[in-house]
Nucleic acid binder design. Structure first.
Lengths: 217, 217
DNA sequence: CGTGCGCTTGACTTTTTTCAATAAAGGTGG
DNA sequence: CCACCTTTATTGAAAAAAGTCAAGCGCACG
């Protein structure tokens, strides 16, 4: 069970059987139920996680309670690595969005493995680089685009992830989507209806939209 | 000359003399004048840089020409590492803010070094983790705080970087500061005068401010 | 069958940007 | 050293974008 999750993760691509065994040996299984907090911003980080099943939301919280989602991770994706290498606290909150099962890798053991297996280090470097790249995209959106532009980018992103179909399925609630886009549900709702009136998108069901005017987005 | 720069960088801490020699052997010296572009977003990345002298601005650009600064790097700091490990393009622009001298490390050679020196990999992981952490802070500011709050955070950051003195020296222009804070010079100017009127800060010279009411920030 | 939560809509306020004009500062060449 | 020109900073008035508060609807779930 541990090994399947490990082998399914991009982080552990191209490793030897021995490496998989070593990783499995240091991994702990942890389970969380919907809404349960995995770690809080500022908690001391003694290891990182890989999602086995379920979904995990990584987010920042303002003093007034507004949240900004940084990522939503699904099966195979690692999270919480920052404090493993920078030696400090988690920089954001993590919460299970659904009943979830995780593999937990303690810091010290994992670092020992890395020291003997450069491929593992390179994989991890690749994961962090990709994440950095995603963050620059998020920063660009937040800073340089208004909410309609961010929504457009998101719709196109989901569409291309689904082989460029014009039907977009939102697998999260609109409230969560608002938080991903850095806004509030009311604003998102207004923009969705405005785009519909302008013939850019069509609502085809609860969480299903159809892109009518792709060029505009 | 190469070796001094290499030894002065946090990225290359705790390495052997042999490692320093290897690094120096693959490093190229590159010079840029003020305002010169080092790389553009989307350029293919075949290596990364370390600042020897001068300052480098890393930023995103909107189609309308507004810019968001992601970082300003000074001597010893590495930049442009993302495509080295994720194998693609630079995710942002880099421009010299002043006459600058850089060390350039080509991708393939650097990766070979990493494979034989786990400490180097761990150092790089640490650098990327720290950067990730900074980005989460930037995202939090942009998304969760209004401009006055971002300015306050910036002032406090500069202040603590200078041993918690109440005098803050801005070593960049206000236009650049506005771009760091994700706003425009006009807005920054207004907020600065408002904070002065409210007795939170005092202007003590061109680029010198004094924090009067630290608690408010 | 009621309660609650997610979503939408309206009216209003706040924040920020835009546009335009002006002032001050910095560097260059005569 | 000064005149000139470019860049940087400030200020005002108006517009636009997004957020707050409040109310109402509908659907799911107990």
């Amino acid at each position: 069970m541990k090994k399947e999750t490990i082998k399914a993760s991009p982080l552990f691509e191209n490793l030897s059987e021995q490496d998989y065994a070593n990783l499995a040996a240091i991994a702990h299984i942890k389970s969380y139920k919907r809404g349960e907090m995995i770690f809080a911003e500022g908690d001391e980080g003694t290891g990182f996680y890989i999602v086995g099943q379920g979904k995990v939301k990584i987010f920042k919280l303002s003093p007034e309670g507004k949240e900004q989602i940084l990522h939503i991770f699904s099966a195979g994706e690692p999270f919480g690595e920052v404090p493993v290498f920078s030696g400090h606290c988690y920089p954001a909150y993590a919460e299970a969005l659904a009943k979830a099962e995780m593999l937990y890798f303690p810091r010290a053991e994992f670092i020992s493995l890395i020291k003997n297996e450069p491929s593992l280090a390179l994989n991890m470097l690749s994961v962090l680089s990709l994440r950095l790249k995603r963050f620059t995209g998020l920063i660009e959106n937040l800073s340089l685009k208004e909410v309609p532009g961010r929504l457009a980018a998101y719709l196109l992103y989901v569409s291309t992830a689904n082989n460029d179909t014009d039907d977009v399925v939102l697998d999260i609630s609109k409230g969560q989507l608002a938080s991903i886009l850095g806004t509030i549900p009311e604003t998102l709702s207004r923009i969705l209806t405005r785009m519909t009136k302008e013939g850019i998108i069509e609502n085809e069901g609860k969480r299903l939209y159809h892109i009518t005017n792709r060029d505009y987005l």
